[in-house]
Amino acid sequence: MQTAIEILKPGLASTIQDAGRWGYQAFGVPVSGAVDDFSLQLANLLVGNSPEKAGIEFMLLGPAIKFHCPTFIAVTGGSCQPALNQKQIELNRAYQVTAGDVLTFKPMKQGRFGYLAVAGGVKTPAILASRSTTSRLQLGGLKGKLLADGDFLPLQPTYQLASLQWRHCDLPVQTPTKELQLRFIKGPQWASFSTAAQEMFCQQQFQISTQADRMGYRLSGSKLPIPANSMLSEGTVTGNVQITRSGQPIVLLADRQTAGGYPVIGTICAVDLPLLVQAGMKQRLRFQEISVADATKLLRQRIQFLQQLAATFQRQRYQLPIGPQQIAGQRIAQLFEA
């Protein structure tokens, strides 16, 4: 039997993503990687992986997946209602699966992107040291494509995971909000915008438009006056808010081009970017400026949060219940419930 997971139904825009293809932007190769990097990192930690391992990203509807070998899984991101063998399972919690188990999803109630991590990570071939998919360039993933039914993704069978019962994380539930607050740092072209444009950017309400994908989200709102002089193209960064010639913002995301010629008014804080990415169409939002030092502090707190979580799992391996007997218990309990 092949040690793999089999895609029974592809879901929507399902791709293999990891922490991205870093180191080749000078050749024009986009970074890609999980568009909600935090959710993939969390999913990885839950199954005992280092945060940069490759998992499956999907949009609005997850794939149906059959496991052909034992492993451990965790689902994070949008509320995608995962079910293992038709029994609902929780988000942000590790589960053991065995050969023959089937994982399915329902359409997301909230959020846009979901993530599935498997112990050891998905082992499709790495290109330029990354397994991330950039589908418009047929790069990475499985032949550079969105996942399709009948695809087999190789993985390493895993039989044990320390402190399985403790591997969960209670994240604050993201409830729908009338207006999302996104913190940003002034961008490299901030000063070339007029005071009026700067004030409009900080004060007016924007809305996520229908043009939103892994490359970027276009926002709509009152048009900003644009700088009179055009600029020379320069490198782009994920979270950049470019103002196009029409005066509307585009937020650049994982699949962004490496260089761009639109002025960047600001860059959304790394910790707030997943909030934008997971927000639905027509979500209203407002920008709020913070300092580089504060944004750095926030991002470091997030890194620490994940490191502490991983350390907690390490410590809990010595707490009862220990080891596989508990997994057997979990299985037996399921039998009685059924």
Partner: peptide
């Protein structure tokens, strides 16, 4: 972690 040279940046 990465470098992007452009015309003047």
């Amino acid at each position: 972690v990465d470098l992007i040279p452009a015309y003047h940046t």
